[in-house]
């Protein structure tokens, strides 16, 4: 059974078909990259999976459950965790408290949440900042902290919303290594603008344009796909 299965998903904002009939699946343990030019609908699809809003049509299944109409917190409790494009820490709470505020997904409630949190923080290189307020961290740290907070959910699927956005080269390299280690714990869906850095990590890549999936396959297939090249380079400077 697939980990995530979205079928015929549509979402319209006013007259704009942001997501226009998309089928999208993620297998357990898979790292799927979601790419496409600006306005392709990848962030909308991402938010539909996370439960930030509901689709106008189509279904989203997670594990055995139809989660199409589940609010975000229920999806988190089922094991869908996420990070944010613009980081959203609980700024006045310490890093540790941020992680302890997480309600772990059902069946994964730990008896030793403090130890779990410390372990996760060590994994993202922030163990020594556990007691600092989240507001005091740099952007690069906060991006990694959000991965740790998402892992605190004990997810089966983790959604990374532009994990590399705003990072320096050094921080990006660190984040890429982190994403590879996350893959061991959960299936990953990653929306990312930086195709050059992110594509090599993916087991499979899905490319969207104007609300539709125009190509999917291995990184090698995607690189040579004419539709993808056209979407990114296109006939116009904007490329769609």
């Amino acid at each position: 059974m697939s980990c995530l299965e979205a079928a015929g998903v549509r979402k319209r904002f006013g007259g704009l078909h942001a997501v226009d009939g998309v089928d999208f699946t993620v297998e357990p343990g898979e790292l799927v990259g979601l790419f496409g030019p600006n306005g392709a609908g990848k962030t909308t699809l991402f938010n539909l999976i996370a439960g930030a809003y509901y689709p106008d049509a189509g279904t989203i299944r997670f594990g055995g459950d139809d989660v199409t109409r589940f609010p975000a917190f229920r999806r988190a409790r089922l094991g869908i965790a996420r990070t944010f494009q613009v980081v959203r820490p609980f700024r006045a709470l310490s890093i540790m408290e941020n992680l302890l505020a997480v309600v772990a997904s059902e069946g994964a409630l730990s008896r030793t949440p403090e130890q779990d949190a410390l372990q996760l923080l060590a994994g993202v290189g922030l163990a020594d900042r556990a007691n600092d307020p989240a507001g005091s961290l740099t952007l690069g740290m906060l991006k990694r902290f959000e991965v740790a907070r998402a892992l605190m959910v004990q997810p089966r699927l983790i959604l990374l919303d532009e994990p590399l956005a705003g990072l320096t080269d050094g921080e990006s390299a660190m984040m890429l290594r982190l994403i590879e280690s996350v893959k061991v714990r959960a299936a990953v869906v990653m929306v990312e603008h930086n195709v050059r850095l992110a594509l090599p990590l993916c087991d499979r890549a899905v490319v969207m344009e104007q609300g539709r999936v125009i190509a999917q396959g291995t990184p090698a297939q995607i690189r040579s796909d004419p539709a993808v090249i056209h979407a990114y380079l296109g006939d116009t400077p904007e490329g769609g």
Binding site: A76, R88, L93, A101, V102, V103
Partner: peptide, 23 residues
């Protein structure tokens, strides 16, 4: 601990709190 942190998380960022499984 749970109620208190949940309350404070909601106060600081509703979307992030929901993503963390807080109702």
């Amino acid at each position: 601990a749970r109620t208190g942190l949940g309350f404070r998380a909601v106060a600081q960022n509703r979307e992030a709190a929901a993503a963390c499984g807080v109702n």
